[in-house]
Design a protein around this nucleic acid. Structure first.
Lengths: 340, 340
DNA sequence: CTGAAAGCGCTTACAG
DNA sequence: CTGAAAGCGCTTACAG
């Protein structure tokens, strides 16, 4: 019913060989303008679209890439809207190059066999860890990859990341500049993620620079999620009296944190200042609006596609690593600490 | 480098024909346990994965579906996290059936040629309108489709939607029950979307039931986005004094609206109550937390995949339309109106 | 139970 | 400039 027509039908109707039809479609070989026009007309009339599977069977490339995103838990992708912005960027980048994007959530058990089976042209991999099983498997597939936010030490890998350290530094310096000295940091699982630990390093650098010594008990650890942020507030306990600011290493956790503080009767920023990280879509409209480190997530996705396609097409530039900039956006969730 | 090995190599090593290898892989035909074991062993050792393109070339099905989402504007998908939740649902539903999901953003200019080219097994289409060009084109492709939130009148189409009317009714009734009588409604573009207009119908029904007559000037129209909601508040003008509650037909617009009201010096819920719709991930943590109409978005995506796969595999049940339930979640953004 | 062969729809040398 | 033919990696009748 759908795609019954093939290159053969076109050839028959246009009175040429299938080779010629193929040449016309691909602009390859030498075809007279006249023949080309004739063939194109027939293609147009029959609304013929070449079979991607037949092509891919010959070419060995599929014009298909996948964006690989880690699962938060059994079979369900993270609910952080950050991923959606990234995916939007990838989609828009790919569509300009006639490449389609498969969305793939993975667990550690993923075997990636379908990547081979489908002859995927390449992979955009979000947030894998150096020592993870997933990373090992992905590398062993041997197809073009771009790693996002992954901080892999192997410099032969293509990577797109953010200047997370600078972001951590800027956020902390902002708080210090306002007069804060007792600044807690709300992190995700540190060991697992280069992103988190780089932001944390930036935090430490700002502290050092200001001559403030770090306190291990100022580290709050929780899931990078709204709920995680909320729980962190609940577990604050007596720490609440000793700190005047919290740097949350992601906006989603800052969002939950602020609500948690609110439920504790603590006002932001009057009692405690909060800085986030990412500048996701809603931060500007929160009450109070969130001071945060801004990154262009959509652009990050687009950049990753570009790098991947350059790699696939062999038009790659020598640089294998793109580090995207961050900036501080000051809003209402931060202010000078109360005088005590 | 990657997938050089084929069924032929397996056949050679296992000392059988390629037909036998194929039969072993697919569990078709009759193969002795012994041969099967031998072949399986070789497949295992060589980590052989059959070529999806070769299969699809024969079968005419690709085990590939697409989720089709409208663009908000030139080449960029909507930033509403609602879509992310939907996509997550679709991904998880598909992965259980060894089907991969392509993400496709479309504009009215989309020609869907790649759907034919790739032999997609089916499409999950989100939010198209009865009279749109996109809908016409999609129908003409002639492949299995499930339409989400589309309110298409053609009853031969498979559709998954929400009981939007009931949601609108519940939300409004809740406000009326609190004592509100002057209830504005914040809508998206009415004519374009069945979803919006059904929610609005529910609003009207609740008003009628309570003997409250509708006022045309209580309709606030804005983009279904955070920014749209914010703008709506800015344009409120003198209306602010005449109403005591606003029913926003989406959470994102409610989120912007509340911020907008805040900037106007209006408190929620003390001065104006606000109800949202969708119950997206953050509503519970907002300050004030948002009273809203809850739907299970992830489940909606899963439901759509299930219906699509049933249709593709011919195991479809007679019902072509699934209407998912809604419920009211009362939180802090609504209260009784002030006595005047 | 097993294999030889045709064919899915393309592309790509290779002749002419 | 154009066409005949091989081959990509599978599946599927059809023999045996």
């Amino acid at each position: 019913m759908t795609n019954k027509i093939s290159i053969k039908d076109i050839a028959k109707i246009a009175n040429v060989s299938i080779a010629t039809v193929s040449n016309v479609i691909n602009g390859t070989g030498r075809v007279s303008a006249e023949t080309a026009a004739k063939v194109k007309k027939v293609i147009q009339e029959l609304q013929f679209v070449p079979s991607a599977s037949a092509r891919s069977l010959k070419d060995k490339n599929s014009h298909l890439i996948a964006i690989v995103v880690p699962f938060i838990e059994k079979g369900i992708l993270q609910d952080n809207p950050f991923y959606w912005e990234l995916v939007r960027g990838v989609e828009s980048g790919a569509r300009n190059h006639e490449v389609q994007v498969i969305l793939l959530g993975i667990s550690e058990a993923e075997d990636f066999s379908f990547v081979k089976g489908r002859h995927l042209d390449g992979l955009i991999v979000v947030g894998v860890y150096q020592h993870s099983e997933a990373f090992r498997k992905i590398k062993s597939i041997g197809i073009p990859c771009v790693f996002l936010d992954s901080y892999l030490s192997d410099s032969s890998l293509y990577q797109v990341e953010l200047d997370d350290e600078a972001g951590g530094y800027l956020a902390t310096k902002h708080l210090i500049g306002l007069g804060h000295r007792d600044i807690a940091v709300l992190t995700g699982k540190m060991e697992q993620s280069g992103v988190i630990s780089c932001r944390y390093q930036g935090y430490l650098r700002a502290l050092r620079e200001a001559g403030i010594s770090e306190s291990p008990d100022y580290i709050l650890q929780a899931d990078s999620s709204v709920h995680g942020g909320y729980q962190a507030a609940q577990k604050l306990g007596s720490l609440a009296d000793r700190i005047s600011a919290i740097f949350a290493l992601s906006d989603v956790s800052a969002m939950g944190l602020i609500r948690g503080l609110h439920d504790l009767g603590l006002r932001v920023p009057e009692d405690i200042s909060v800085v986030g990280f990412d500048d996701i879509f809603y931060t500007k409209y929160m009450i109070p609006s969130l001071t945060t480190i801004q990154q262009d997530i959509v652009n990050k996705g687009q950049e990753a596609v570009k790098m991947l396609l350059d790699q696939i097409n062999g038009t790659q530039s020598p640089l294998k690593k793109a580090v995207l900039p961050v900036s501080l956006v000051v809003r209402q969730s931060t202010s000078a600490p109360k005088k005590i």
